[in-house]
């Protein structure tokens, strides 16, 4: 199970910010999320959305071990 975290407008859109999802890769995770909520699936792939796996930014595909933390980060605003 990956622990999925949503931030900013993505969390507002989804209506949740922290959820466990069964997925062995980032692609499988995106597919699983999109199957439940297609609009969210589209937003997660939208412009400027970055992905952090265990708090490190990842571009492209990544394998997800058990208890991996995957965060979807919309464009950052600064403080």
């Amino acid at each position: 199970m990956a622990r999925v975290l949503l931030f900013g407008r993505l969390a507002d859109q989804a209506g949740w910010r922290d959820r466990s999802v069964e997925a062995a890769s980032l692609t499988a995770l995106r597919d699983a999320l999109a199957a439940v909520d297609p609009d969210l699936g589209e937003a997660l792939g939208g412009p400027g959305v970055q992905v952090a796996v265990d708090k490190t930014i990842v571009r492209g595909e990544a394998a997800l071990a058990a208890a991996t933390e995957v965060a979807f980060l919309p464009p950052m605003s600064g403080g």
Binding site: F7, R9, L73, M76, S77, G78
Partner: peptide, 11 residues
């Protein structure tokens, strides 16, 4: 840096 690039989301 903090105003433009730091990872915060502001509402």
């Amino acid at each position: 840096y903090l105003k433009s690039r730091a990872p915060f989301w502001k509402k």
